[in-house]
């Protein structure tokens, strides 16, 4: 599935998306494929699935997880809290990917350890640009010695 882009020397960024909405998963996938950064995307359709995935043995952990807040079975906030309380998942960056633009939600997720808060846009190119920016900055945090504790980004 992974396409090897032209500048094939670079390492691949592992990305996961947990979203119960099929359309949104589709848009996301299309958007990320549109970006020049080399990524490997895993799609999960709810929170429980994500947690199960993360707990698989020998799994190559994603560098970045996009997490919808409003999901059945296990919602985004619960996942966030679980991930942040698991030392094994310390290095994973979490981007909240939600329609909610309530300041309260935003602050709560940041406080609970989210690194990025991304509102679902209503325009594909905006989505692609946003994802690209998140990936870029995330990539910087992975490749340059920036302090990941202070990695906060609101888009």
């Amino acid at each position: 599935m992974n396409k090897i882009p032209a500048n094939s020397g670079k390492q691949i960024l592992n990305v996961a998306l947990a979203d119960d909405d099929e359309d949104d998963r589709l848009f996301f996938q299309e958007a990320i494929e549109d970006i020049s950064i080399r990524t490997k995307l895993s799609l999960l359709s709810d929170g429980q699935e994500l947690m199960d995935y993360l707990n698989l043995p020998n799994i190559i952990l994603p560098n970045l997880i996009f997490l919808d807040l409003n999901m059945p079975i296990k919602n985004g906030m619960q996942c966030l809290k679980e991930i942040r309380s698991n030392p094994k998942l310390n290095d994973v960056c979490i981007a909240i990917y939600s329609t909610s633009c309530s300041e309260n939600d935003i602050e709560e997720t940041f406080v609970n350890g989210a690194n990025v808060y991304l509102n679902k846009p209503n325009n594909f190119s905006k989505l692609r640009d946003s994802i690209e920016k998140v990936l870029q900055i995330n990539w910087q945090y992975h490749t340059s010695n920036l302090n990941r504790d202070n990695f906060l980004l609101r888009l």
């Binding site: 602050e107 940041f110 406080v111 350890g113 808060y117 202070n150 906060l152 980004l153 609101r154 888009l155």
Partner: peptide, 15 residues
């Protein structure tokens, strides 16, 4: 960051 410095500090403190 998409955040104001004040908000950033607030979040860190709450964290």
């Amino acid at each position: 960051t998409g955040l104001t410095p004040t908000k950033f500090q607030e979040i860190l403190e709450r964290r």
